[in-house]
Simulated assay, not measured.
Amino acid sequence: MNLRNNTILITGGTSGFGFDFASKLITLGNTVIITGRNLEKLRKAKLQLPPVHIYQSDVSKPEDITRLFNDVTARFPGLNILINNAGEMRKISLHHQHDLEDITREVEINLMGPVRMVQQFLPHLEKQPEAAIVNVTSGIALGAFPLSPIYSASKSGLRAYTQSLRVQLKNTGIKVFELLAPGSTTSLNDKFMGEDGFSTRFMMAPEKVVDAALKGIERDKDEILPGASKLLKVLSRLAPKLALAQASKIGASYMYGK
């Protein structure tokens, strides 16, 4: 996949992987558009990356996606790459009481968001000579992470959807990539600091994860597994019970209320 002179839309582009994707893709000569829920963060990103185009939009809201599609495709008719990066991860003890609408928040953002984005933008992408969809899942999609049960389920679901999407689009000009991101030193993981069993030892810097992703996309690798994600894939096949047992040690006191 050629990563120069494209028009690229990145959801959740104000920090972490999304911001690094934007920065590196702009350097490669692409037109880059980022979205985010927080207007102040979008404006800050614009100050840091003057060439970037910003849109306030929430992937968990279908009406925002429709508005985003109408605005972006009218202004950037050459849009040909969609990177579904927006995500949320929470630690949740299912022993605690949770509002029934709030408990599924990660499903709405991490799974339904990309599904709706693809459905909305697919007819436009199909008109482009060359196009791509990049879904950012997680090494956690390869097995359960009990401390974040809803996040874990949402990323596993997105992985299954991405695989099905790739099959259905195989006779089109749209390539479908999956970035199974490993644990990274982004704000997403800040809330886990101090939890028993949690370690930053195998975490990758976000810029290194994005570098690996871009190399994989350029080489047309359907699945990109940087760092520890490669090991997690091996463990999920050869020793799934061991992988779950190790994951279950993280945050045990929080989960079981000890």
Rank of each mutant, 00 (worst) to 15 (best):
L188D: 07
G157I: 07
F177S: 01
K191V: 07
K175S: 07
L142C: 12
S156V: 06
D211T: 08
V136I: 15
P182F: 03
F198W: 15
L142V: 00
V209T: 03
T162S: 13
F145N: 10
T186P: 14
F145G: 00
S138W: 12
G143V: 09
K191I: 02
R159A: 12
G143M: 14
R201C: 05
F192W: 05
A141V: 11
I150V: 14
S199W: 11
S138F: 10
K175T: 06
T186S: 09
P182C: 08
G143R: 15
T185V: 13
S199E: 08
S164F: 03
I150M: 06
S148L: 02
R159C: 03
L180Q: 14
F192D: 00
D190H: 08
S148E: 06
S184Q: 07
G197Q: 06
S187F: 10
I133A: 05
K191M: 09
Y151A: 04
L188C: 06
T200Y: 00
G173F: 02
F202Y: 09
P146L: 03
L165S: 03
M203R: 08
V210T: 00
G194F: 12
F177E: 00
N135W: 01
R201L: 10
M204F: 11
R201S: 08
Q168N: 00
E207D: 15
S154H: 01
G183D: 04
